[in-house]
Protein backbone atom coordinates (compact mmCIF):
# COMPACT_ATOMS: atom_id res chain seq x y z
CA UNK A 1 0.00 0.00 0.00
CA UNK A 2 2.83 2.36 0.95
CA UNK A 3 4.43 1.74 -2.45
CA UNK A 4 1.26 2.68 -4.27
CA UNK A 5 0.80 5.86 -2.23
CA UNK A 6 4.42 6.86 -2.78
CA UNK A 7 4.21 6.13 -6.51
CA UNK A 8 1.16 8.40 -6.75
CA UNK A 9 2.86 11.15 -4.72
CA UNK A 10 5.99 10.88 -6.87
CA UNK A 11 3.97 11.01 -10.10
CA UNK A 12 2.19 14.11 -8.80
CA UNK A 13 5.50 15.75 -7.91
CA UNK A 14 6.83 15.07 -11.40
CA UNK A 15 3.61 16.41 -12.86
CA UNK A 16 4.01 19.52 -10.69
CA UNK A 17 7.29 20.11 -12.49
CA UNK A 18 5.23 21.11 -15.53
CA UNK A 19 4.13 24.24 -13.65
CA UNK A 20 7.71 25.41 -14.14
CA UNK A 21 6.94 25.96 -17.82
CA UNK A 22 4.87 28.97 -16.81
CA UNK A 23 7.76 30.46 -14.85
CA UNK A 24 9.84 33.16 -16.46
CA UNK A 25 12.31 33.50 -13.59
CA UNK A 26 15.43 31.37 -13.96
CA UNK A 27 15.50 30.44 -10.27
CA UNK A 28 11.89 29.30 -10.21
CA UNK A 29 12.40 27.15 -13.27
CA UNK A 30 15.35 25.46 -11.64
CA UNK A 31 13.26 24.91 -8.52
CA UNK A 32 10.71 22.98 -10.55
CA UNK A 33 13.51 20.93 -12.14
CA UNK A 34 14.49 19.97 -8.58
CA UNK A 35 10.89 19.09 -7.71
CA UNK A 36 10.63 16.79 -10.75
CA UNK A 37 14.01 15.24 -9.87
CA UNK A 38 12.89 14.57 -6.30
CA UNK A 39 9.74 13.00 -7.73
CA UNK A 40 11.84 10.68 -9.88
CA UNK A 41 13.94 9.56 -6.92
CA UNK A 42 10.87 8.95 -4.76
CA UNK A 43 9.25 7.02 -7.60
CA UNK A 44 12.22 4.68 -7.79
CA UNK A 45 12.49 4.17 -4.04
CA UNK A 46 8.73 3.63 -3.79
CA UNK A 47 9.08 0.45 -5.83
CA UNK A 48 10.65 -1.18 -2.75
CA UNK A 49 12.55 -3.77 -4.73
CA UNK A 50 16.25 -4.12 -5.60
CA UNK A 51 15.95 -2.52 -9.04
CA UNK A 52 13.93 0.40 -7.70
CA UNK A 53 16.26 1.09 -4.80
CA UNK A 54 19.40 0.84 -6.95
CA UNK A 55 17.75 3.09 -9.54
CA UNK A 56 16.74 5.59 -6.88
CA UNK A 57 20.24 5.68 -5.40
CA UNK A 58 21.80 6.10 -8.85
CA UNK A 59 19.48 8.95 -9.69
CA UNK A 60 19.93 10.63 -6.32
CA UNK A 61 23.75 10.54 -6.52
CA UNK A 62 24.08 11.76 -10.11
CA UNK A 63 21.27 14.29 -9.99
CA UNK A 64 22.49 15.84 -6.75
CA UNK A 65 26.07 16.04 -8.00
CA UNK A 66 24.89 17.70 -11.21
CA UNK A 67 22.05 19.90 -10.10
CA UNK A 68 23.78 21.65 -7.18
CA UNK A 69 26.73 23.05 -9.17
CA UNK A 70 24.29 23.71 -12.00
CA UNK A 71 22.06 25.85 -9.82
CA UNK A 72 25.05 27.65 -8.31
CA UNK A 73 26.44 28.41 -11.76
CA UNK A 74 23.10 29.69 -13.03
CA UNK A 75 22.73 31.77 -9.88
CA UNK A 76 26.21 33.23 -10.24
CA UNK A 77 25.77 34.03 -13.93
CA UNK A 78 22.39 35.66 -13.32
CA UNK A 79 23.60 37.65 -10.32
CA UNK A 80 26.75 38.98 -11.97
CA UNK A 81 24.94 39.90 -15.18
CA UNK A 82 21.80 41.26 -13.56
CA UNK A 83 19.58 38.61 -15.15
CA UNK A 84 16.30 37.63 -13.59
CA UNK A 85 14.15 36.04 -16.28
CA UNK A 86 14.99 33.58 -19.04
CA UNK A 87 14.76 36.31 -21.70
CA UNK A 88 17.83 37.83 -20.10
CA UNK A 89 19.85 34.71 -20.76
CA UNK A 90 19.85 35.48 -24.49
CA UNK A 91 23.40 35.06 -25.82
CA UNK A 92 25.09 34.84 -22.41
CA UNK A 93 26.61 31.47 -23.28
CA UNK A 94 28.38 32.91 -26.31
CA UNK A 95 30.28 35.26 -24.05
CA UNK A 96 31.52 32.44 -21.79
CA UNK A 97 31.65 29.33 -24.01
CA UNK A 98 33.57 27.05 -21.64
CA UNK A 99 31.24 27.81 -18.74
CA UNK A 100 28.39 27.13 -21.12
CA UNK A 101 29.84 23.72 -22.04
CA UNK A 102 30.07 22.90 -18.33
CA UNK A 103 26.45 23.95 -17.81
CA UNK A 104 25.29 21.87 -20.77
CA UNK A 105 27.05 18.81 -19.38
CA UNK A 106 25.56 19.28 -15.90
CA UNK A 107 22.09 19.79 -17.38
CA UNK A 108 22.46 16.62 -19.48
CA UNK A 109 23.32 14.63 -16.36
CA UNK A 110 20.33 16.17 -14.58
CA UNK A 111 18.03 15.25 -17.45
CA UNK A 112 19.51 11.76 -17.77
CA UNK A 113 20.54 11.42 -21.39
CA UNK A 114 22.07 8.06 -22.40
CA UNK A 115 25.58 7.26 -21.09
CA UNK A 116 24.99 9.19 -17.86
CA UNK A 117 24.46 7.48 -14.50
CA UNK A 118 21.08 9.19 -14.16
CA UNK A 119 19.96 7.35 -17.28
CA UNK A 120 21.03 4.04 -15.78
CA UNK A 121 19.00 4.94 -12.71
CA UNK A 122 15.93 5.65 -14.84
CA UNK A 123 16.30 2.30 -16.61
CA UNK A 124 16.61 0.44 -13.28
CA UNK A 125 13.60 2.33 -12.00
CA UNK A 126 11.48 1.33 -15.00
CA UNK A 127 12.55 -2.30 -14.75
CA UNK A 128 11.73 -2.28 -11.04
CA UNK A 129 8.35 -0.80 -11.77
CA UNK A 130 7.50 -3.51 -14.30
CA UNK A 131 8.83 -6.25 -12.02
CA UNK A 132 6.91 -4.95 -8.99
CA UNK A 133 3.40 -5.71 -10.22
CA UNK A 134 1.55 -2.71 -8.81
CA UNK A 135 -1.48 -3.10 -11.05
CA UNK A 136 -2.81 0.25 -12.24
CA UNK A 137 -0.06 2.01 -10.34
CA UNK A 138 2.51 0.41 -12.65
CA UNK A 139 1.07 2.56 -15.44
CA UNK A 140 0.94 5.59 -13.14
CA UNK A 141 4.61 5.03 -12.39
CA UNK A 142 5.48 4.48 -16.06
CA UNK A 143 3.76 7.71 -17.05
CA UNK A 144 5.56 9.40 -14.16
CA UNK A 145 8.87 8.04 -15.40
CA UNK A 146 8.19 9.27 -18.93
CA UNK A 147 7.22 12.70 -17.63
CA UNK A 148 10.27 12.65 -15.39
CA UNK A 149 12.43 12.62 -18.51
CA UNK A 150 10.31 15.06 -20.48
CA UNK A 151 9.83 17.72 -17.78
CA UNK A 152 13.53 18.55 -17.20
CA UNK A 153 14.02 18.60 -20.99
CA UNK A 154 11.18 21.07 -21.37
CA UNK A 155 12.47 23.25 -18.54
CA UNK A 156 16.20 23.21 -19.22
CA UNK A 157 16.51 23.01 -23.02
CA UNK A 158 14.85 26.38 -23.73
CA UNK A 159 17.25 28.07 -21.28
CA UNK A 160 20.28 26.37 -22.80
CA UNK A 161 19.03 27.23 -26.27
CA UNK A 162 18.62 30.89 -25.43
CA UNK A 163 22.04 31.09 -23.85
CA UNK A 164 23.86 30.12 -27.02
CA UNK A 165 21.36 30.42 -29.85
CA UNK A 166 19.45 33.66 -29.35
CA UNK A 167 17.48 34.96 -32.27
CA UNK A 168 19.83 36.76 -34.63
CA UNK A 169 17.92 40.00 -35.18
CA UNK A 170 17.43 40.61 -31.49
CA UNK A 171 21.11 40.41 -30.60
CA UNK A 172 23.05 42.20 -33.27
CA UNK A 173 26.34 42.52 -31.40
CA UNK A 174 26.55 38.76 -31.00
CA UNK A 175 25.41 38.14 -34.54
CA UNK A 176 28.16 40.23 -35.96
CA UNK A 177 30.72 38.38 -33.93
CA UNK A 178 31.75 41.42 -31.90
CA UNK A 179 33.66 40.27 -28.87
CA UNK A 180 31.66 41.18 -25.82
CA UNK A 181 32.66 40.39 -22.29
CA UNK A 182 30.31 39.32 -19.57
CA UNK A 183 31.25 38.65 -15.96
CA UNK A 184 31.82 34.93 -15.54
CA UNK A 185 30.96 32.98 -12.40
CA UNK A 186 33.49 32.95 -9.57
CA UNK A 187 36.65 30.98 -10.33
CA UNK A 188 36.28 28.77 -7.28
CA UNK A 189 32.80 27.83 -8.39
CA UNK A 190 34.04 27.02 -11.88
CA UNK A 191 36.85 24.85 -10.51
CA UNK A 192 34.41 22.92 -8.31
CA UNK A 193 32.02 22.65 -11.24
CA UNK A 194 34.69 21.26 -13.59
CA UNK A 195 35.94 18.83 -10.95
CA UNK A 196 32.45 17.51 -10.33
CA UNK A 197 31.84 17.30 -14.07
CA UNK A 198 35.02 15.24 -14.46
CA UNK A 199 33.94 12.94 -11.64
CA UNK A 200 30.48 12.58 -13.19
CA UNK A 201 31.96 11.84 -16.60
CA UNK A 202 34.35 9.18 -15.32
CA UNK A 203 31.69 7.52 -13.21
CA UNK A 204 29.19 7.70 -16.05
CA UNK A 205 31.54 5.87 -18.38
CA UNK A 206 32.49 3.37 -15.70
CA UNK A 207 29.61 2.97 -13.27
CA UNK A 208 30.69 -0.29 -11.66
CA UNK A 209 32.21 1.30 -8.51
CA UNK A 210 29.00 3.26 -7.90
CA UNK A 211 26.93 0.09 -8.29
CA UNK A 212 29.22 -1.81 -5.92
CA UNK A 213 29.06 1.01 -3.36
CA UNK A 214 25.27 1.17 -3.53
CA UNK A 215 25.00 -2.62 -3.21
CA UNK A 216 27.31 -2.64 -0.17
CA UNK A 217 25.36 0.10 1.59
CA UNK A 218 22.06 -1.60 0.79
CA UNK A 219 23.32 -4.92 2.14
CA UNK A 220 24.34 -3.24 5.39
CA UNK A 221 20.97 -1.54 5.70
CA UNK A 222 18.83 -4.54 4.91
CA UNK A 223 20.90 -7.27 6.53
Amino acid sequence: MLSKILITVAALLILAGLIGLKMKMVGKRLLFVCIAAVGMVILSVAEMNTYGLVGGCFQAIYRILAIIPGILLFHSICKRNGITDIEGLNGVGRKMPYTYVLLVFLCMVTIGIPITGTFTGIIYSEIGLLAGGYGVFTYVGLIGNILGIVVPVMLLFPMLRRMYFPEKEKNTDVAEGVATVAPSPAKSLLVIGWLLAAVLLVFSLYQQPVLVAISTVMQKFFS
Binding site: E126, N145, I146, V150, V153, R161, E167, K168
Partner: peptide
Protein backbone atom coordinates in the same frame (compact mmCIF):
# COMPACT_ATOMS: atom_id res chain seq x y z
CA UNK B 1 23.34 27.16 -36.46
CA UNK B 2 22.24 30.29 -38.33
CA UNK B 3 19.91 31.36 -35.53
CA UNK B 4 17.21 32.78 -37.75
CA UNK B 5 13.71 32.85 -36.35
CA UNK B 6 12.32 30.07 -38.52
CA UNK B 7 15.22 27.71 -37.86
CA UNK B 8 14.97 28.24 -34.09
CA UNK B 9 11.20 27.74 -34.01
CA UNK B 10 11.46 24.53 -36.01
CA UNK B 11 14.45 23.31 -34.02
CA UNK B 12 12.21 23.52 -30.94
CA UNK B 13 9.64 21.30 -32.61
CA UNK B 14 12.44 18.97 -33.72
CA UNK B 15 13.79 18.54 -30.19
CA UNK B 16 10.26 18.03 -28.87
CA UNK B 17 9.73 15.14 -31.26
CA UNK B 18 13.21 13.77 -30.58
CA UNK B 19 12.38 13.66 -26.86
CA UNK B 20 8.98 12.08 -27.48
CA UNK B 21 10.43 9.50 -29.85
CA UNK B 22 13.28 8.58 -27.57
CA UNK B 23 11.01 8.25 -24.52
CA UNK B 24 8.76 5.90 -26.50
CA UNK B 25 11.72 3.81 -27.64
CA UNK B 26 13.14 3.70 -24.12
CA UNK B 27 9.84 2.55 -22.65
Amino acid sequence: HRRDKLALANANIYIGFVTAGMVLILT
